[in-house]
Amino acid sequence: MKAFEYFEVECEDAVGGDAYRQIAADILGDLDLIKVIGRLHIYIDPKVPLFLAVGVTRKLPRLVRLRDFANVLEQGGGVVIDISDETYLSQLLNILWERFGRDLVEQPDRWTIQIRSGDVNPSDIEDLVVFDPTESLAKDLIYALQYIAPEGFKVRRQLVKEGRFYYVASENTLEEGMVERLLAEKFAKIGVTV
């Protein structure tokens, strides 16, 4: 497991800050997210109260396309997909059902899918994006931060986009502009200009 390039918890209350550092490390470790996050800065102000986390994700595994785990052959009036790895099969079936309808998509056995439609281009099908790792990453990251943040902080704003993410939570409505100012300030600490 690679450690973070940068990991800081900033808090006036030293005891609480240390405790949250441990909590964050435990939770990110449990959820297997340490290798995904490059830099992470957490800022907590119990007076407001406010919990803010900003970070940068590492380079993610690329998109999974159909050609990565199957071959597409033209046959009769449609195509046959010959699968070599079942990992993303359920996602693939869902996509195909949605696109062609259940009546045209058949799966005679575990390793084969037939599409009985005339207007299918095999090369198009080969490029089909079956799984996007960033989609579940955003969900997992936000879940982890929600779990790390003190409970009951329900006024919140979050974003996971283009290799960076933030999570701001409080139990009170925050002053206008405060979040933007803090985000810019904390992102600067991990070397990101917003």
Binding site: V15, G16, A19, I44, P49, P150
Partner: peptide, 12 residues
Amino acid sequence: CAVYLLGNFEEC
């Protein structure tokens, strides 16, 4: 008796 398990911040 009751044991209250509270959190990490004095302020809270």
